[in-house]
Design a protein around this nucleic acid. Structure first.
Lengths: 252, 252
DNA sequence: TTTCCTCATATTGTATACAGGAAGGATAGG
DNA sequence: CCTATCCTTCCTGTATACAATATGAGGAAA
């Protein structure tokens, strides 16, 4: 009901290529730095070169791959600092949308809607013990919250930019949630994050722009802390989509 | 010396199409809302459909055109509010890079380099009377300053995002400079802008992150004021690239 | 006169052919 | 044994052909 499930029909070849390629890259099937052969992708995705090429252009804009001067594209590698900065950028953009929502005022309907989302998250975190399904649900709800927050800015330009910043590699609001799930502090982190959710909505309701902005920036820094925790051990790292693209600074 | 001038040789067809299409759109040759016929673009640009299509995808990412649900692309229209928000987004990103530069520290070489740029701008503004050539030079120098500022963040991710934000329609740091030139306050605006340039570099040198960020945000708001002035009368509006895409909210 | 349906046309999305050039290996020379 | 050069192979960028579908005009019916 949410979207078309059929993977073959009613989906453009370009979209199919885009999803396949993104999966291939994030799963680590393609080595960072390695040139992406278009013909190989034709074989692997089952679509012809034209849509593959379209998808490559979009993935370049997304930041997952980069153009090679002599032609073609290569998978990017990401340092811990790169990911930190991506999250910081996302925090800045979400801070901006939150401030805009607060200063310009959010509609009663939007506030009511996002509070329902918050209630759902509360219901989730009330469980004394959280399993993988719970975390998967949280990822969904969290995405819903962030999308709704963006919408509350009321600005198409800001919404677009916030979405684009969130689509940066490893910058997604839920990027490290699944990794959290293996951590002992998992529940604590979720509770803190949810408190920030509540606070930013309160700030928006009270028209406190500065406060709303700084909360969202801090909220992004919570993701950075998750990243640090996730990078700490291999078990959690394996739960991060695209972990094969992360180059550790040292091999000590 | 700055870049390849030859429009025919040694430039890929895709780049040629990209530049041609952007010009066509900004010049107002294509009506906002109107579907962009690929075949027409083939005729007008002299390249085949494939590179035209590539260029269209990139222009969509840039935000100048949007996909039509039934296929193809249409030129976007921009309200005054859209442009305000684009500039605000750019200000937020440049605020972020300035803060990063301040907090992480800029190299002596980078500081020396950007100060040379500032000196050049000072030399320009010292002229008692400014003609169109002066403003054109300012546009160049201003672009150089902003690019150098982005670089000072030292973060490839932030540089990239700052450039992308600056590439949003009408969000360029120099977007309304040429329009200024026809205004009586032109020189004043330039002097104020240049003072902000000096101040932000001082803040970065002194490691004052918060100050550097707020200066760049305010610097962007100066562009917003220029926009308001430019929208005020037709003479100045005509100097704005892409003015045909701006839809006035009312025709009073 | 207005609305709906049908059909011809035009346009996009996709596949594929072709040419120029880059990457890598093998071979010959130092 | 190392290095430089040439050659083969593969790959990308571009053009174009083809099919499915959207668009718009024109006519018929209410």
């Amino acid at each position: 009901m949410t979207q078309d499930k059929d993977p073959d029909r009613a989906v453009s070849q370009t979209v199919k290529a885009l999803l396949s390629l993104r999966d291939l890259i994030l799963s680590g099937a393609l080595q960072p730095g390695e040139r992406i052969s278009e013909l190989s992708m034709v074989e692997r995705t089952g679509v012809s070169r034209t849509p593959v090429r379209m998808a490559l252009v979009r993935l370049e804009e997304e930041g997952l791959i980069e153009a090679i001067p002599s032609g073609g594209f290569a998978v990017k590698a990401f340092s811990e600092a790169d990911i930190f900065d991506s999250i910081e950028v996302r925090g800045a953009m979400e801070g901006l949308v939150a401030r805009a929502a607060a200063e310009r005022g959010a509609s009663r309907a939007a506030l009511a809607d996002i509070k329902l989302c918050l209630d759902d998250i509360d219901a989730l975190t009330r469980h004394p013990v959280l399993n993988l399904d719970h975390f998967a649900s949280y990822v969904q709800l969290n995405a819903r919250f962030h999308a709704a927050l963006h919408d509350m800015s009321g600005s198409a330009v800001m919404i677009r930019q916030a979405e684009r910043a969130s689509a940066l590699p490893f910058a997604s609001p839920s990027g490290f949630v699944m990794a959290q799930s293996a951590l002992p502090q998992a529940r604590t982190i979720l509770i803190v994050a949810q408190d920030q959710h509540r606070c930013v909505i309160e700030a928006i309701e009270n028209r406190e722009g500065e406060r709303a902005e700084s909360i969202m920036r801090e909220h992004a820094r919570l993701a950075r802390r998750n990243l640090q925790l996730a990078l700490g051990n291999q078990t959690t790292l394996d739960l991060v989509a695209g972990s094969a693209l992360i180059r550790r600074p040292s091999r000590a």
